[in-house]
């Protein structure tokens, strides 16, 4: 039995000379929620498409539970695609039945499983409603449920929260945690939402431009860039940013000062206590402040620290 359920060995995928994924090597442990964090276009979906066998790597290899991708039992993987992929003219129940049959789930097991999934994802009263008549949130939940109808060992969720209302998102997050805690599944999650990666993932891989930038637990990642809070300052004249950054860098106990998309991003211990000095410094160089906010360190700040840019939408 392998220690890692999925292992990618230096996988690369090119599309017409463009490297969507560039030498990605990582190992995913059994029973963990593994987050892929990165902006849109970072190569997350391409990476998981290679992991499930929808896409062949241009080079490199994917090993699942110690076996080559080609030989692995398809039923061990369940995939929830980023887009809503459903049959509009079937009912929820019929969609479940179809996918259960496609994975050769025994009829009695399937019946029980459908009932549980409908209940867990609050779709019981919609069981016989045509998919085309469901709300967006319901479709999202059904989209996820179809990926796990055959009880796969590995569940891949590609941007599962995309387009969800807060209520549906909460249902989804609870369900993802229950997949790990109650059913012992390995969950691989791609997201560009900091909050989602932070709250759900045991480990997070930060990926951008097809490359793995960092892989660790959310706590370690946040620790790695150091403690402190984040002060975000917007000046009335962005041309003054350089001068202000120069001034702020001279201050004591300031850990880092960066300009990110026209906003000054300052990380410092006891940031609130330093606010008067910060404002004085801004005035000294003749700049005027349009906005200022203070918040806790997040995974996005890890991303900013690594790339110098925010996560792109």
């Amino acid at each position: 039995m392998a220690d890692y359920i999925i292992e990618t060995q230096d996988i690369t995928r090119e599309f017409d000379g463009f490297k969507a994924v560039d030498g990605l090597s990582l190992q995913i442990k059994k029973g963990e929620v593994f987050g892929f964090l990165g902006p849109n276009g970072a190569g997350k979906t391409t990476s998981i498409n290679m992991m499930v066998g929808l896409l062949k790597p241009t080079s490199g290899q994917v090993i699942i539970d110690g076996q080559d991708m080609e030989k692995f039992d398809k039923a061990a993987i369940g995939v929830c695609p980023q887009e809503i992929v459903l049959w509009d003219n079937l009912t929820c129940q019929e969609c479940f039945k179809l996918m259960g049959d496609m994975y050769e789930v025994p009829k009695d097991v399937l019946k029980q499983r459908i009932g549980k999934l409908l209940e867990d994802l609050f779709l019981t009263d919609k069981a016989n409603v045509l998919v085309r008549n469901l709300s967006g949130g319901m479709k999202r939940r059904l989209n996820l449920a179809l990926a796990v109808v055959h009880q796969p060992e590995i569940v891949l969720l590609d941007e599962p929260s995309e387009g969800l209302d807060p209520q549906s998102r909460r249902v989804l997050w609870e369900y993802i945690i229950s997949l790990r805690d109650d059913e012992g599944k390995t969950v691989i999650l791609t997201t560009h939402l900091m909050d989602e990666a932070d709250r759900l993932s045991d480990r997070v891989a930060i990926i951008d431009h097809g490359k793995l930038l960092k892989l660790d637990t959310p706590e370690n990642l946040k620790k790695e860039i150091g403690g402190g809070d984040i002060v975000e300052i917007t000046l009335t004249d962005a041309l003054m940013n350089g001068k202000v950054i120069g001034k702020l860098e001279e201050m004591e106990n300031v850990l880092s000062v960066l300009e990110v998309e026209g906003i000054i991003n300052l990380r410092a211990l006891n940031a609130v206590g330093k606010l008067p000095k910060i404002m004085d410094g801004i005035e000294e160089v003749g700049a005027r402040m349009a906005d200022l906010s203070v918040r806790q360190n997040t995974l996005e700040d890890v991303f900013i620290d690594l790339t110098g840019t925010r996560l792109r939408e």
Binding site: L54, K74, P81, V85, M102, E104
Partner: peptide
């Protein structure tokens, strides 16, 4: 939907 079916048996 074909990709979904394709991932099955």
């Amino acid at each position: 939907t074909l990709a979904r079916l394709k991932l099955s048996k």
